[in-house]
């Protein structure tokens, strides 16, 4: 459910959300809401995360043992689930990051000649 007609915001590609979660958790364990905020904040609100979609992704990562979950207390003294990056998750983050960089590079290269063509 993308909000409003905000053209500058980009919907996330499937699989990319995983990368962003792992990246966020590298800074330390935290709860779901904080993860959503962190992603939104660090991408200058360009990346639109429908916050709910975070949860299936988190559980997918738990299932793959890339993150683990524990009970904790949030900053406003609320009981919450805290998600933590596992060792396996840390390794995966490196893999996923380089994969992403390759993809981004590739797409950039695909697009570049197209632009030149249309300009010439």
């Amino acid at each position: 459910m993308s909000t409003k007609g905000d053209n500058e915001r980009i919907e996330l590609l499937q699989g990319t959300l995983d990368l962003l979660i792992l990246r966020t958790l590298r800074l330390g364990p935290t709860h779901g809401h904080a993860i959503a905020k962190a992603i939104e904040f660090s991408s200058d609100s360009v990346l639109q995360v429908e916050q709910g979609s975070l949860y299936p992704a988190l559980h997918r990562l738990i299932k793959r043992a890339w993150i683990s979950v524990e009970d904790g207390t949030s900053e406003n003294n609320r009981r919450a689930k805290f998600y933590r990056l596992t060792a396996k998750g840390k390794r995966q983050l490196v893999v996923e990051t380089s994969k992403w960089n390759r993809l981004a590079g590739a797409i950039a290269q695909v697009l570049r000649p197209a632009r030149q063509e249309s300009e010439s």
Partner: peptide, 18 residues
């Protein structure tokens, strides 16, 4: 609520993971 999205759908999707 709006920002979170459809709670039912999210729950369903998460259950599906398992």
């Amino acid at each position: 609520m709006l920002k979170f999205g459809n709670v039912m759908q999210v729950t369903e999707d998460t259950r599906e993971v398992w």
